[in-house]
């Protein structure tokens, strides 16, 4: 059964339409990559899954995104509940000005996890899942800012994982990182899909080709083509997709 079903999704910034009749299904335990030139609507689309677009004034949306039996586009759903299940990692690593420990436990602590030993267990397991534990286990009280860029991004992933989410959204998570850090994050994503459903926006077609199972190509707010990643990259049906993938524009 599909994890998420998007039907006829339209999104507007004031009068400007950013997404046009988007239809898509997201399968569980897969990585779905969203690619396309900047301004094509892929980030707007990603941010619709955890309603981060709510912070932008003057936007409107219609259509539906069905997840867990609810239409999460609906104004009346509990967005906080939604964001607990749909985690997000941003373009620029954004550790909070707190210790590594406090960064990881930030969400669960405020959602009611007060017992110290449970917190410790959760921090350890989340950091292990994020492949950061070995590097930081000695200095959990150090500020998150003291880590390298790649480590910071994995810390942010651990912060997400500690909430035990169902879906993970990644918004160009490696665009601010060096190639080695990028590789580590990519390996991590492939491991994580065993337990989570992952949607990633990426500016790098190679990244999409390397890690994703499905790829969707966006252009001017429309999904031009979506399918198995291997299929899209070797045998695109639409010639705009092919031209984008071969670097003719973008």
């Amino acid at each position: 059964m599909s994890k998420i079903i998007v039907e006829d999704l339209n999104f507007y910034y004031g009068d400007v339409q950013a997404l046009k009749d988007v239809n898509m299904t997201i399968e569980p335990n897969e990585i779905t990559a969203l690619i396309g030139p900047s301004g094509c609507g892929k980030s707007t689309f990603l941010r619709a899954f955890n309603r981060m677009n709510d912070f932008i004034k003057n936007t409107s949306v219609d259509g539906s995104i069905i997840y867990d039996g609810m239409n999460i586009v609906d104004k009346d759903i509990d967005v906080v509940e939604l964001r607990m299940k749909v985690g997000m990692v941003f373009q620029k690593p954004n550790p909070l000005p707190k210790s590594i420990f406090e960064n990881v436990i930030y969400g669960p602590k405020r959602h009611g996890l007060k017992k110290k030993h449970l917190q410790k267990e959760l921090v350890e397991s989340s950091l292990k899942q994020a492949a950061l534990w070995e590097e930081v286990k000695e200095d959990l009280n150090k500020s998150g800012f003291e880590l390298s860029g790649g480590q910071q991004q994995r810390l942010c992933i651990a912060r997400c994982l500690s909430m035990k989410p169902d879906i993970l959204l990644f918004d160009e998570p490696t665009s601010a990182l060096d190639p080695i850090s990028t590789m580590k994050i990519e390996d991590l994503l492939v491991q994580l899909k065993e337990h989570y459903t992952i949607i990633i926006v990426t500016h790098s077609m190679h990244q999409a080709a390397r890690i994703s199972d499905k790829t969707a190509f966006f252009l001017n707010g429309e999904v031009i083509e979506m399918g198995e990643t291997g299929e899209i990259f070797s045998n695109a049906k639409d010639n705009r997709t092919e031209r984008y993938i071969s670097g003719k524009f973008g």
Partner: peptide
């Protein structure tokens, strides 16, 4: 940890 209860409190 009972999420719905703490959730309610947070909303309150």
């Amino acid at each position: 940890m009972e999420p719905s209860k703490t959730r309610k409190r947070a909303l309150h």
